[in-house]
Design a protein around this nucleic acid. Structure first.
Lengths: 162, 162
DNA sequence: AATGAAAAACTACACTA
DNA sequence: TAGTGTAGTTTTTCATT
């Protein structure tokens, strides 16, 4: 599993084309990638290995449907910290990073400190999550929950320019 | 590429253990999955195939680091529609779904209509995105941008209970 | 860029709870 | 009958030239 800070040469057209494919389906055989982008399979192989080694591809994962594993509540939570001292912020980051219900966490500008995407089994477990993570946490001043009605789009694809 | 609405038997311990592994690294050889969960490789093979066929695993993807492809702005946008008539909402969903800069889109409760996660090259292209998608769109009443300073956690992992 | 070796994914079939 | 393991086949990956 590659995760280098990466000193990387800029990506060329081939790399970008390969990334577009792997972002959609990383099980695509190198042979058919090679056809699509007009390279040999060996070239594709070397490029994919390099993209992984330099961290351009950070992970290779299966995407699981939350409904299928009976995790029916997705919520977006805006978190307001008591203060923005770096110790406070770093502690919050660490806490969110290791909480499994927190699927995504972003530190943001504009008044709100963090935006979280939280996944739980049901409303009861969402409530106990908020107790545990927000209400018993002194550095959290306040939070606002937006419950997701429809996960319209959850691709984690990055738009890759031509 | 599997995507069935999924009428499926509930997942057992084996399935959940397999999902936990594949969510972390879907390149894990079936042989080592088999060892971890105490099944034969063939059994693992069949279960993975079934999980894909029923849509429990919706996709298999490479996760690309936005910085590596020079997409340096991530923004979280709260969108307020003019009204919540279903035609208006559905049109907005369709529009967001097909806009490549919109990496994720959630329809939510609580005043805000949509929360978007938007990825662009830089601030200039973020601005032209907002013009194109919000300001020239009559059904968008208003929107609020939170610019991401730190992508603290961007796993798209679902917590899978024991 | 092409070949060949190694590994992984998949299939067939007999067996068992 | 649904699901497993063994063992054999095909496909994919990867190193070497």
């Amino acid at each position: 599993m590659a995760k280098k800070p990466s000193a990387r040469a800029p990506l060329d057209q081939f790399d970008r084309a390969i990334l577009r494919i792997l972002q959609t389906d990383n099980k695509t055989p190198q042979r058919s990638i090679a056809e699509s982008v007009n390279l040999s399979t060996a070239a594709v192989q070397r490029r994919v290995a390099a993209l992984e080694a330099t961290g351009v591809i950070s992970r290779n994962v299966a995407v699981v449907d939350p409904d299928a594993v009976a995790m029916s509540i997705t919520a977006i939570v805006e978190v307001y910290l008591r203060d923005e001292r770096s110790a406070t912020v770093d502690a919050a980051k660490a806490a969110f990073r290791k909480t499994p219900e927190v699927q995504q966490c972003y530190y943001v500008t504009g008044g709100t400190s963090f935006v979280l995407i939280v996944v739980t089994r049901d409303m009861r477990s969402y409530e106990s999550f908020t107790r545990k993570v927000f209400e018993e946490n002194d550095s959290v001043n306040n939070y606002r929950t937006l419950v997701v009605i429809d996960r319209v789009k959850t691709d984690t694809q990055i738009p890759i320019e031509e």
